[in-house]
Write a protein that binds this DNA or RNA. Structure first.
Lengths: 130, 130
DNA sequence: TTCCTTGCAAATCGTTTGCATAATG
DNA sequence: CATTATGCAAACGATTTGCAAGGAA
């Protein structure tokens, strides 16, 4: 499955790289369309799936009903604000803090894990007149 | 919002309590319908949402496109098999192993986290003729 | 009688897909 | 020319919702 150049895919990658807020497919679509008004939603979905499969971007399934995408594929965690729904990166003192697979009494083989943190973001903490 | 008795809701709770495999709404529907052929999918969804909101059951967003439900609301982790898609409970040596929120350089307030483990279940490990 | 709950069907939402056309190598 | 990618619209699967009727307090 050789990859051929496509302007659309480049625009999608570029957009994703300059965003730190983990946009959804629809947000990618709406923004890329500003630069290429003819692009279709289907193309955006296809390319996001393709890039995810190739490991060039990361798909975040945050459980809010719609997938988010992150051009930063380095190991890091994500925080989701329960109030405003924003998604932020979390920096930890080494990812080693995360539960050790060995401590699990499990007969199968664990090859990966996914962790998300939830709470109130800094902004929403301040406007606490909830 | 005072809660009134409903046979349908009881059936749903009963079914969920006797299952350890974290069924989806549709599976709940199909099974409860055996006892109450008139129940509708909408009612199942409404009650699952209601019970989730009240904390009587847990909703699992595993990222496989459909939500799963768990009557066991005690703290424990879940494992999802990448091959057969089954969902299993994980027992750890105390949940304390999980990343300490204090180790996060984060200005907001973290109130919860969600962790899922992925890999091959025991069954699928054996039938390794993948 | 009040109002929570239901069954049913239509509606929504996010995402995928078929197909004919356009662009790349 | 062979192949991959695109735009468009229709199709999809999961979940939600409006509404009139039913059941519980």
């Amino acid at each position: 499955m050789a990859l051929k150049y496509s302007r659309q895919r480049e625009l999608i990658k570029d957009f994703l790289r300059e965003r730190r807020d983990h946009p959804t497919a629809d947000i990618v679509y709406r923004n890329v369309r500003l630069l290429n008004p003819n692009i279709s939603l289907g193309t955006v979905y296809r390319n996001l799936a393709l890039l995810t499969d190739r490991g060039e971007i990361r798909r975040l399934r945050l459980g809010d009903g719609t997938d988010h995408f992150d051009a930063d594929i380095s190991p890091h965690y994500h925080f989701i604000c329960n109030k405003c729904g924003c998604v932020q990166d979390l920096q930890m003192d080494g990812m080693a803090d995360i539960p050790d697979v060995d401590s699990l009494h499990f007969k199968g083989k664990i090859t990966g894990r996914m962790t998300y943190f939830y709470g109130l973001c800094e902004q929403c903490c301040q406007n606490s007149g909830d």
